[in-house]
Design a protein around this nucleic acid. Structure first.
Lengths: 178, 178
DNA sequence: GAAAATAAGTCAACATGGCTGACATAATTA
DNA sequence: TAATTATGTCAGCCATGTTGACTTATTTTC
């Protein structure tokens, strides 16, 4: 009687997952890996937030500044492809970065419709400052995870990315080695 | 003359990063690892979006449902600690999940102020459906990255998480093995 | 050389999911 | 009984994503 009125956690109900119908339960180890990825990314992206708050920028500004700084001369279209956001979303933060003197735009050398993007010295300085705690976090984690961890995790992350993006990423990475 | 009026990408300017002042350039390999993490997470979180759109939920609903489903009996306070969001942000999506019959709340067995959270059968079914493409993606990536990749990446991700969170995560993980 | 296609920008409106602050309720603990 | 705790709720704000419609400058194509 009291059980029905007062149904608390000690009194299971029929439609709850507790009574586990358990068709094909997913492997715990993999589920935990997913959760670890969530926690790691959560803390990783939190690193630059304090700095960003000080200067009135957000994570969106950080992402744009990072890629422009690391790949000077990037076009707007490249950035859209990298970030997978719309032109309008990008425009909002890009405009602010240009206004604040972090990024400069110049017409493309062969096609003058293009706006090639470059970080200024201030932009570069900020980009590095924002990346610093993230590099530190990764470095620390790699050291604690053994010699092979850098190569293995590089492979794993690469293989987690949509296959049809692989070519674009190879090309992006090759830019900055040239 | 034309250079000054028409400054294009072929005509470098003094305040641009291009002229690299290069104090302590960060190591390319690590920067690429950061970028791979961004790309991998971008695609990973995108997996469930199609399903979520169909039923009018967002990523926030997914996260809540996932943790409640995987750790039945979680308290609201636990969830806040896991997600690192405010009570008000959680309330918004939790209410919808309860209204849609995905999650049920019951008073705690010893402390009746608590609301213990449980996924319903529908909730469990949805949680699994949402996780399925993500599990598939990770599984595929692990297979392509060699035997050790699961153990190593588990270590790496764990070591990327703030140290002061480690205890809470151990405890969380132990819940569902008991 | 005119027309079509492309790269980029812009305006407006809207959705999602964070946030703060203030306050309410019920139950437990001191 | 009073204080503390767990949770909920109202209201409003902000960052950052979306769609759709339209403009401008430049290049490419016919």
């Amino acid at each position: 009687m009291a059980d029905i009125i007062n149904k608390d956690a000690a009194a299971p109900r029929s439609d709850l997952q507790e009574t586990t119908p358990d068709q094909e339960e997913p492997p715990h180890a993999l589920v935990e890996l997913i959760e670890l990825l969530f926690f790691a990314y959560r803390d990783f992206t939190n690193d630059p937030d304090t700095i960003l708050d000080e200067i009135g920028f957000g994570r969106a500004h950080h992402r744009v500044l990072h890629f422009v700084n690391h790949y000077p001369g990037l076009r707007v279209a490249d950035l859209l492809d990298i970030l997978k956001i719309t032109k309008q979303s990008l425009a909002r933060v890009l405009k602010q970065l240009v206004d604040e003197g972090m990024i400069e735009q110049r017409p493309g050398p062969s096609d003058r419709r293009e706006r090639r993007l470059f970080s200024t010295q201030r932009g570069q300085k900020l980009a590095r400052r924002l990346m610093e705690p993230q590099l530190h976090r990764i470095n620390k984690a790699l050291k604690l995870s053994g010699m092979e961890s850098e190569e293995i995790s590089r492979k794993l992350l690469y293989n987690m990315i949509n296959t049809h993006e692989h070519e674009a990423i190879e090309e992006l990475f090759s830019r900055q080695r040239s």
